[in-house]
């Protein structure tokens, strides 16, 4: 067993800058500036600017470019899903992670060993991105944002229906939906459209920017309008989408008597929802819930599970009870507790 451990960490090891692959001399989602990075997805804690070279999906590169400017790295390398890239003595390819548009798992192969770094992922369907695909592997590196058995996200269509129902109950008000600007916002809009809601949806500037990018990347989101250009009265009975921090911000005063809603996996816990002053908590997350985390590990049954950012202790304990070797990787620099993109 000990020999195996050594072998695996020859191929991938935790460092202060993030997970490092010695045979390929690159990092995955580095939290500090490095020479060569593989980036799983566009969330700011995973995708930082200033690396010497970045390999990622076309969409992730576009998201990084829109946040940091086109020159966020001197060398961009686009990797299509499943396309194999030789870096040093390692081979890297990307598989869909189902987290946000462009999100991918990084699959690293070297010396006959395969390690999959899931980045952030979810298993359920999302109208705005490709669905997670399980890749058999020796080591599975999993996130653990919602790794407690109290987190079981309900069906997302039911949650979106709650927000749409509020519009009917309060035609004089609006529903201000707090949602992380990248991914969650577009998914909610997509789900509302699928539920037959084709009225204009009003957007905060930060959300608008990313919705426009999604549209250029081929995701249709329907009639979207900026809040800044709208009259107060025309927004009555409509959905407004804004980053979570604007829920209680001065910005919201321009809205007609908003019902404060917040879409996040954290909304499962009442105290968390009340702490945010939320009137309508929607339990919708782009991260795997407890069942998704555990069924994925059961399905893959890897030699080892490495647990990154989140609630490592519960998942490591659970894996132990299933006879699966698991250990926490104490990586720092990723959003976990309370991150709005839950």
């Amino acid at each position: 067993m000990k020999r195996v451990m050594v072998t695996f960490s020859d191929i991938l090891m935790p460092t202060k800058a993030g997970l490092y692959c010695p045979p390929g001399d690159f990092y995955i989602d580095p939290t500090r500036q490095v020479d060569r990075a593989v980036v799983t997805h566009g969330h700011a804690d995973h995708a930082r600017a200033g690396h010497g070279a970045v390999l990622a999906t076309r969409q992730t590169l576009a998201i990084m470019g829109s946040r940091y400017g086109a020159n966020f790295t001197p060398a961009q390398q686009t990797a299509a899903l499943g396309e194999r890239h030789k870096i040093g003595d390692a081979t890297v390819w990307l598989a869909p992670a189902g987290h946000v548009l462009g999100s991918a798992q990084a699959v690293i192969e070297a010396k006959g060993v395969r390690i999959v770094v899931s980045g952030d992922y979810k298993r359920r369907r999302d109208p705005t991105c490709a669905r997670f695909e399980p890749v058999p592997c020796d080591v599975f590196v999993t996130e653990a944002t919602f790794a407690l058995p109290v987190f079981r996200h309900p069906d997302d269509t039911g949650e979106v229906a709650k927000a749409l129902h509020m519009l009917e109950v309060f035609p004089e008000r609006c529903v201000l939906l707090g949602a992380y600007s990248l991914g969650k916002a577009q998914r909610l809009i997509g789900l509302a459209r699928e539920a037959g809601h084709d009225a204009p949806i009003y957007l905060h500037g930060a959300v608008e920017k990313l919705c426009t990018l999604y549209e250029t990347l081929g995701v249709r989101l329907g009639d979207l309008r900026p809040v800044m250009k709208a009259e107060k009265d025309e927004m009555r009975g409509h959905l407004i989408v804004a980053p979570p921090q604007s829920l209680n911000d001065k910005w919201s005063r321009r809205l007609p008597d908003p019902v404060a809603a917040f879409a996040s996996g954290w909304m499962r816990v009442r105290a968390r929802a009340r702490q945010r002053g939320v009137e309508l908590p929607l339990i919708i997350s782009d991260h795997a819930d407890w069942d998704e985390l555990t069924t994925t590990i059961e399905e893959l049954r890897p030699e080892e599970v490495w647990v990154t950012h989140g609630r490592e202790d519960a998942l490591v304990h659970w894996a132990g009870t299933q006879g699966i070797n698991a250990r926490p990787l104490s990586l720092v620099g990723y959003d976990e507790e309370g991150g709005d993109h839950g």
Binding site: L148, P149, V150, R311, A314, H317, W318, T321
Partner: peptide, 12 residues
């Protein structure tokens, strides 16, 4: 599982 119960209660 008692450990998972305790971790959950601590959190909630």
């Amino acid at each position: 599982d008692p450990v998972l119960f305790r971790l959950s209660y601590d959190y909630v």
